[in-house]
């Protein structure tokens, strides 16, 4: 359904134009985040803007949203002399907001592999529900992103974009390093 919307709104994509892209994201937590929620996130989206600098280089902005959720089975959590047993419902929302730079490895073919970097901030919101209580940890983190992907020109006016991105939000006082890999598929069209 989302993909249908994407196709409907794809207007044009040109090799030497700035472009917008909307992508659906599937994500996997790593490190501390993967320990907290091991399940795959099927709720995610990404909006990108890329400005033309040269035929090989684009700079722009990424704004994403990924929702992670896991229902942990009844378990016991012990700290010191205290133990607490119950079911936990764990949620984590990640909102990366990044400035980006992409480098196209190939420019003269329909299939254009590229690599990219991002720098900016990521809002992390972690909620743990147990009994009738919710325990929340929120933090704005300094974030870096590495990316590899493919742009495939369907025709002169539009392209499909497939990207694998790794986000890392750096440790703050309230939350440790938060990292995740996201696989993104969407459409790009020129502005």
């Amino acid at each position: 359904m989302i993909f249908g919307f994407l196709l409907m709104t794809a207007k044009s994509y040109g090799q030497q134009d700035s472009y917008m892209s909307v992508q659906y994201s599937v994500s996997f937590g790593t490190g501390d985040m993967g320990d907290y929620i091991s399940k795959t996130s099927w709720r995610g989206m990404l909006i990108e803007y890329r400005g033309y600098v040269s035929s090989k280089i684009f700079v722009g902005m990424d704004a994403g949203w990924n929702v992670f959720y896991e229902n942990k089975d009844y378990d016991t959590y012990t700290q010191g002399t205290e133990s607490l047993s119950g079911i936990q419902y764990r949620y984590q929302n990640q909102v990366p907001l990044l400035a980006t730079l992409d480098y196209l490895i190939v420019t003269d073919k329909a299939l254009k592999p590229y690599v990219g970097l991002g720098i900016g901030t990521m809002y992390s919101e972690r909620s743990t529900d147990m009994n009738l209580y919710r325990y929340e940890l929120n933090s704005w983190q300094f974030a870096l992103k590495g990316e590899v992907g493919l742009l495939y020109e369907i025709n002169y006016s539009s392209a499909v974009k497939l990207a694998v991105k790794y986000y890392n939000g750096f440790k703050t006082n309230s939350l440790g390093n938060q990292g995740y890999v996201s696989v993104n598929l969407g459409m790009a069209w020129s502005l």
Binding site: T9, V22, I47, Y69, Y89
Partner: peptide
């Protein structure tokens, strides 16, 4: 179009407690 996608993705807290016993907790200390 952007708004519709955001709504389609659902809430930021999917799932949760369904049954009364899902709220049962046991705390011990010594």
């Amino acid at each position: 179009f952007y708004l519709s996608i955001i709504i389609l993705l659902g809430s930021c807290h999917p799932g949760g407690i369904e049954y009364y016993e899902d709220t049962d907790v046991v705390y011990t200390n010594y």
